[in-house]
Simulated assay, not measured.
Amino acid sequence: MSLTGKHILSSDLFDRDELERLFRLADLLVPVARGEQVTRVLEGAVMASLFFEASTRTRLSCESAFLRLGGAVSSTTGSEVTSMSKGESLADTGRVVGGYCDLVVMRHPEVESIHEFAAATNTPVVNAGNGAGEHPTQALLDMFTLHREFARLGKTMDGRRIALVGDLRHGRTVHSLMKLLSRYDSMTIACVSPAELGMPAPLLELAAARGHRIEESDQPATALKDADVVYTTRLQTERFADKPMPYSDDFRIDSSLVNRVCRADAVIMHPLPRDSRPGSNDLSADLNGDPRLAIFRQTDAGIPTRMALFASVLGVADGIAASLRPATWHRPAFTGPDDAPFYRNSTR
């Protein structure tokens, strides 16, 4: 399957073969993402970056990914600074912006927004988050992170126990991730949330129909036992008209819980941002020195993954290997002081 020219609106687009092709390309692009090598396969191309909802990692890593490929970026943030504040429709905006660029990356708080926008243009549109719907590029980088983590641990993806923890009803990252996990074989997927914040039934049914074992629980301390991966999310308070009460203390994933119930080789993930305010009961900062914590390895995975996707959508992926050359500028260490020693010492 070729991604050239396609809209990337949902994780439904990716089968297992396509995922593994993208991961091979992302592996090749890791040194480019780190500033160690250079490619200019998208020189002259323009990406429009349209973020109508708050973003740090997704916006900056998408823009950095396109720039690292040699392209240029034109961006806007917030609907109040666009003509939509004057009543312009998403369809009109899509038709106009599509004429200004070669690829659009868009985030919007409404689920149907990305589909209305994409229907109005032939320019490829990449979904960077549509309300409580999906976030396919985040799911791709999450799976690329697992690809690298499992390779380091000598594991394969098939047959793993994955615990998804938190606000699974409104968390668009876990919606897209559920679809990609289900492309592999013989998974046990534990969906761990308060009852009113459970994974949407169609996603549970999809994974079950593909042969996976599904468990639902509101007890993290039990569900996290023997998990190969613990993927936790914050409470999506922006999706509620009235702010709900925060999670119970049971949903605080901290060193005490992890050391008590998790495997020594578990991979602990979070799409970020994590809510560090008192009473949030999200992923705790007291895990920052734990080598099982992969959240910053996830964020580092964002640029090569998105580079691989953009290169594929614009049809230049096959030219990357021959285009690589060493960077000539000073590049500081890409890791932080709390990163695991195996990661600080890695060259790829």
Rank of each mutant, 00 (worst) to 15 (best):
Met47Ile: 10
Gln37Lys: 14
Leu60Ala: 11
Leu50His: 05
Ser49Arg: 14
Ala33Trp: 08
Thr39Leu: 05
Arg34Trp: 13
Leu42Thr: 01
Arg40Gln: 11
Glu53Ser: 06
Gln37Phe: 03
Leu42Phe: 06
Ser61Gly: 04
Ser61Ile: 01
Val46Lys: 13
Arg34Val: 06
Leu60Met: 15
Val46Asn: 09
Glu63Ile: 04
Leu42Tyr: 08
Arg57Thr: 02
Thr56Asp: 06
Arg34Glu: 15
Glu36Pro: 05
Leu60Thr: 11
Glu63His: 09
Ala54Asp: 10
Arg57Ala: 03
Ser49Thr: 08
Val46Gly: 03
Phe52Ile: 05
Met47Gly: 03
Ala48Val: 02
Val46Trp: 07
Gly35Cys: 12
Met47Cys: 12
Val41Arg: 04
Ala48Glu: 02
Ser55Cys: 01
Cys62Pro: 05
Arg59Ile: 02
Val38Met: 12
Phe51Ser: 00
Phe52Ser: 00
Arg40Met: 04
Glu63Asp: 10
Ala48His: 08
Met47Pro: 10
Thr56Ile: 12
Glu63Asn: 10
Leu42Arg: 12
Ser61Pro: 09
Val38Ile: 15
Leu42Trp: 10
Ser61Thr: 11
Arg57Ser: 03
Gly35Met: 13
Ala48Cys: 14
Phe51Cys: 08
Phe52Cys: 11
Glu36Ser: 13
Glu63Pro: 04
Glu53Pro: 05
Met47Phe: 11
Val41Asn: 01
Glu36Thr: 14
Thr56Arg: 06
Ala33Ser: 11
Leu60Glu: 09
Ser55Trp: 11
Glu63Gln: 15
Gln37Trp: 09
Val41Trp: 01
Thr39Pro: 02
Arg34Leu: 15
Val38Arg: 13
Gln37Cys: 02
Ala33Lys: 00
Ser61Val: 07
Thr58Met: 06
Met47His: 11
Arg40Asn: 13
Glu43Gln: 12
Ala48Asp: 01
Arg59Met: 08
Glu53Trp: 07
Glu43Lys: 15
Ala48Met: 09
Ala48Ile: 13
Ala48Thr: 12
Ala45Asp: 01
Val38Cys: 06
Leu60His: 11
Gly44Asp: 00
Arg59Pro: 00
Phe51Val: 10
Gly44Gln: 00
Arg59Ala: 14
Glu53Lys: 09
Glu43Ser: 14
Leu50Asp: 07
